[in-house]
Design a binder for these strands. Structure first.
Lengths: 141, 141
DNA sequence: GAATTATTTAGACTATATCTAACATGATAT
DNA sequence: ATATCATGTTAGATATAGTCTAAATAATTC
């Protein structure tokens, strides 16, 4: 992943490219497995530069606000993050909570009448069920 | 709402119809505004029977597992619940976090190839943006 | 390089949810 | 009816996830 590209995408959104912020963004781009904030914090701190927990959360918040990162809320579990690269939908495993990407396809928008005065920003599709690891186990219970 | 119908739906799922559990279910059926666990706990305790916090959470978990209640995870906020009555999609306000229902319409399923060995249970659509209350305010910032 | 602004930090704090172990209740069998 | 047993409830402790604060540091601008 090109470091300059990351720097540019941060600065293009009005965010300074600090070592800590860069580390969060780079980690998300290299690890597409939807890590939690805690996992990102740990990963970033395995090597220099160090980053405090507050900074990791701050940077995740900033990156989400800037539209570079997506947060996926998972019921009863910590939020998970991914860099907004290629568009995709999400599959969440009922059993282990894993979040996986599902190939993108267009989703029909709701009739404008049912939205009223609301302003629609985005439309996401979430599939639920059992991931390929959990499916066999569940079947045998 | 018919108390007998609630009792039957609980027992049909192997859950005893206790006063506390009934209260949670009845509250959710009467209040379609997606309350949080804390709100449900408070509401149930405004009148008899009393219910502890743990019981409220236990019952919500049981009801979700039984498929009678849906949990909607909202980023950075407490989970919200609704009785699974009529099928609907959800609209979540970026600004105030409110969860609103959007009229149901069918969503095309993913190509079976992109699901692999996963077992698909359901498919939900989440719209994001600004609710009708927040839309005007945001425009003027 | 001084001033300004954004960012980072450790640790306290808040919010949300789960766990524990004792007790109560409802269902079943005798 | 009463004993038995599984299910449900409870208060409070504990865990987990995330935010806040105020001081220190780093980046940017003048």
């Amino acid at each position: 992943m090109d470091p300059e590209a990351i720097r540019r995408s941060l600065e293009g959104r009005g965010l300074r490219c600090t070592a800590q912020r860069y580390a969060v963004m780079a980690f998300l781009m290299e690890h597409t497995g939807h890590p939690t904030a805690a996992e990102i914090f740990e990963a970033v701190n395995r090597a220099d530069p160090r980053s405090s927990r507050a900074t990791t959360y701050n940077n995740l918040r900033d990156l989400v606000q800037a539209g570079l990162v997506r947060e996926v809320a998972v019921e009863g579990r910590a939020a998970r993050f991914d860099a907004k690269g290629m568009r995709h939908h999400h599959f969440i495993c009922d059993r282990c909570g894993k979040v996986e990407d599902v190939e993108w396809y267009d989703v029909p928008r709701p009739a404008s009448g049912s939205l009223g005065k609301r302003i629609l920003r985005e439309c996401e599709l979430i599939f639920r069920g059992l991931c390929s690891k959990c499916a066999p186990r569940q079947a045998s219970r």
